[in-house]
């Protein structure tokens, strides 16, 4: 499973970074970036789905 942040859509709500700091970081402006090229380690799939489901801007997608 991989997560992807659409930089055009991300407005820096910071929900993904709060919910899944293992999968996302934020830059100096507070916008989200994927860690590990977006690869989701085993056991963190639920957190990845939470990040998607809580992004107010629909900026995060998952590919299986």
């Amino acid at each position: 499973m991989r997560v992807h942040v659409d930089a055009e859509k991300c407005q820096g709500h910071n929900r993904c970074y709060s919910l899944a700091p293992e999968l996302f970081d934020v830059d100096d402006l507070g916008n989200a970036v994927e860690l590990n090229d977006g690869n989701v380690p085993e056991g963190l799939e639920h957190k990845a789905r939470l990040a998607v489901a809580n992004c107010p801007e629909y900026a995060i997608t998952i590919t299986e």
């Binding site: 407005q11 709500h13 939470l50 489901a53 809580n54 992004c55 107010p56 801007e57 629909y58």
Partner: peptide
């Protein structure tokens, strides 16, 4: 758990 709220607004 799923809470895509807009309390802080949306967009730019």
């Amino acid at each position: 758990e799923e809470n895509r709220h807009a309390a802080f607004g949306l967009g730019i």
